[in-house]
């Protein structure tokens, strides 16, 4: 009964309940904003093993900062800022301590045919490498759109970018991806089919 109530509850009410120590309210906030936070982290850090740790740190910071959230900005904007800062800090730490392992074993969805699994994994890794060459601003917005399944309006609210700019970034990101893939293909890198 309580879970269903929280699903329809507004952010400000969930924040108030979370501050009062209601764990289910905070759980709902995490589930609501996890896709966005993860997309931002992927947009900044790219394909890294520690993305999930950074994601958890984001929500721990969100919880600890709930009392300081005054509601001047939208809750999504606030979480976006925390996620971006946390990801940027994680990226800085990596620069100081050395790069992470280059190849990450991406969990492939269960398929019946092993050759299909390898093909999917190759395709994904190729796409990740190409995405890694995009400008960070483009990558973050693209991740919010596809990984986070957010509408242009939601992206605009969270990032505080005008909706026209969001559309332009996504448009340019796709054109840039095509250029990157063409260049890689001209350089002899095989693009998995």
């Amino acid at each position: 009964m309580e879970e269903k109530r929280f699903q329809t509850e507004g952010d400000s009410s969930l924040v108030a309940d979370s501050i009062r120590g209601n764990e289910k309210a905070f759980r709902e906030l995490i589930e609501r904003y996890q896709p966005m936070a993860f997309s931002v982290i992927r947009g900044v850090l790219g394909d890294r093993e520690d993305a999930e740790d950074v994601l958890q740190n984001v929500f721990i910071k969100v919880y600890k900062g709930l009392r300081g959230f005054r509601g001047d900005a939208k809750f999504s904007t606030w979480v976006y800022r925390i996620a971006r800062n946390e990801a940027v800090n994680a990226a800085r730490k990596t620069v100081l301590s050395g790069p992470p392992a280059d190849e990450v074993d991406l969990a492939a969805p269960e398929r019946s045919r092993p050759d299909q699994q390898y093909r999917d994994k190759d395709q994904r890794e190729y796409l990740e490498r190409c995405l890694g060459e995009l400008e960070e601003n483009y990558r973050v917005v693209l991740e919010l759109r596809y990984m986070g399944e957010m509408s242009y309006q939601e992206i605009s609210d969270a990032t505080e970018l005008p909706i026209g700019t969001v559309k332009t970034y996504i448009h340019r990101a796709k054109l840039e991806l095509k250029r990157v893939m063409t260049r890689r293909s001209l350089a002899g890198e095989h693009r998995p089919e």
């Binding site: 995490i30 896709p35 993860f38 997309s39 999930e52 994601l55 969990a107 796409l127 990984m147």
Partner: peptide
């Protein structure tokens, strides 16, 4: 790009770990 959603960890798992 849409299929990459499969890489996203389950929100319920993230919530359980954070809690």
């Amino acid at each position: 790009l849409s299929e990459r959603r499969a890489l996203r960890p389950a929100a319920t798992r993230t919530a359980a770990r954070v809690i």
